[in-house]
Simulated scan of single mutants.
Amino acid sequence: MTIREPIYPAASARHALYDRHGYSPAVRSGEHLFVSGQVGSREDGSAEETFPEQVERAFGNLEAVLQAAGCSFDDIIDVTTFHTDPEVQLPDVLSVKERYFADRPYPTWTAVGVTWLAGFDFEIKVIARIPRE
């Protein structure tokens, strides 16, 4: 039986948010890391003011979770993003995405338009492989 091991980024005040809402930022199971949706939230849980800042912060929050598990963006297999206005927001997302996923092979990617993200306009969740030591 595979055990689920929760992963929390180091020194994050956001831990209280995860506990309050009853989920882990990521779970390691076997050779895979399943990362919960990361949004553009500051340490206090509030949203960054502009959409580009939310996207930057969401990728930064994702990076912190990946690092806590010993992973990097190179280990990501699958990406799902959620957008409140995909047509308008896509250029801002792509400009950040291209910095984090600059080279082939690219992960799979699914973008979903939604009407509500609890006060945010962008969310990114991923599945990554755990590097062998």
Rank of each mutant, 00 (worst) to 15 (best):
Y23Q: 06
V114G: 01
G70E: 05
S46L: 13
L33M: 03
A69R: 00
F120A: 03
D78S: 15
S12M: 06
D78P: 06
E63P: 06
A102L: 09
S95Q: 11
V114W: 00
G37A: 15
T80R: 14
F120H: 06
S24Q: 10
L94V: 09
V126D: 00
T84P: 00
I124C: 03
R14A: 12
F82N: 07
W109A: 11
P91G: 04
F120Y: 09
V114Y: 01
P52A: 04
A26Q: 01
S95L: 07
G119A: 04
P107C: 03
L17F: 13
S29A: 15
S95R: 11
G45E: 01
Y8P: 05
P86G: 12
D19S: 08
H21K: 09
I3V: 15
R14H: 11
H15A: 13
V93G: 02
W116Y: 11
T2N: 13
F34V: 13
M1W: 12
A47S: 15
W116K: 07
T110Y: 09
R57S: 08
S36L: 05
C71D: 01
D121A: 08
R42D: 12
E48Y: 10
R4P: 10
S24R: 08
S29T: 12
T80N: 14
P86M: 14
P6Q: 01
R99G: 06
E133N: 11
T110E: 15
S46C: 10
G37L: 09
T115Y: 06
D85W: 08
R129A: 11
E133W: 10
T2H: 14
V39G: 11
I130Q: 01
P86N: 08
E56H: 13
I76Y: 00
F73G: 00
T108N: 12
D19P: 03
S24P: 05
D44G: 04
L17W: 10
R42E: 14
T115K: 09
R20I: 07
F82L: 15
V79G: 02
Q54V: 04
D19E: 14
R99P: 04
G30S: 08
